[in-house]
Write a protein that binds this DNA or RNA. Structure first.
Lengths: 156, 156
DNA sequence: TATTGTTATACTCTATAACTATA
DNA sequence: TATAGTTATAGAGTATAACAATA
């Protein structure tokens, strides 16, 4: 989803019954995703020219000494071809580089460049600000509980 | 996301630090979506040949006397062209029909056929079963609270 | 002129299979 | 033979703009 063009911003549709949908977690998760994606675009995406996945990749690389594409793909649920393209793009922007793993020539270590580390840091800061914007809707405790429940539902 | 092919089912990646991602609601929402989408596919999607949106459309039509494409689009955040194609497909399966609105010739009422109502009923039942499968991870109270928090975060 | 819905088109994202290289 | 990563291709989903019909 993601509607710019002709869709009214906040449609007055409170009189439409959700029916069975109301008890379906997935429906509410999908709706929440619309909100969080919009938040991300405004706070991080447009400002730093990063897609959600790209942002996630940068965050993971910033938080871990070295990661192989394989591990990145496992965490973010990305297929190898998909990941190759993503890393290509970030590499073209000189945000990361791929180093050959000296212990196993098949594998490689993906590491942030200095520019990548700087961008990751700025983007992380923007993400923190982004989360505080949610405080208009959720208290800090609710925010934490929501994440905890999602983690539990997800099984991680 | 949605990885069938070469991705390991449950990758042992607990040793990868999430970093700033850990506090980003959108990240956890996206992860939860992977779970809920998978659940949906197994319980409803494959069984009834319904995509998520199609299921949602059926649920809304079942719960409301009559809805115009416009209103459906507002609730489900679907663009008009997108919705036209979706309704076309459901109509070809004889699950719904489009009636001209006698009060305003520009608008139309989308209504379920008997077959559509029957399928909606069966699919809703399957969705209820689906939600109970979450009880392995979430208590009933947690399930309800999670939905409530998501609703609050979404602003509906 | 504004609104509802449709058609046509292009683009992004992802899925799949086949390939290379290391082991 | 198995694994890590790449390349190539096709497909699903969605966005955009232009259009038709009604108000």
């Amino acid at each position: 989803m993601g509607l710019r063009g002709r869709m009214p911003e906040a449609a007055p549709v409170d009189d439409v019954a959700l029916g069975a949908l109301d008890c379906v977690l997935g429906y509410h998760v999908a709706r929440a995703a619309v909100v969080t994606v919009g938040l991300f675009e405004r706070h991080v995406g447009e400002r730093f020219g990063l897609r959600k996945v790209e942002f996630s990749i940068l965050m993971l690389l910033a938080a871990n000494a070295a990661l192989s594409p394989k591990r990145l793909g496992q965490v973010l649920l990305l297929s190898p071809p998909n990941l190759t393209l993503l890393l290509d793009r970030l590499q073209e922007r000189s945000l990361l580089r791929r180093e050959r793993n000296p212990l196993d020539g098949r594998s490689q270590n993906v590491v942030l460049t200095d520019a990548g580390r700087a961008l990751a840091s700025d983007a992380a800061e923007a993400a923190r600000t982004m989360e505080t914007e949610l405080s208009a809707r959720l208290s800090s405790a609710e925010h934490a509980m929501l994440i905890e429940l999602l983690r539990k539902a997800t099984g991680r």
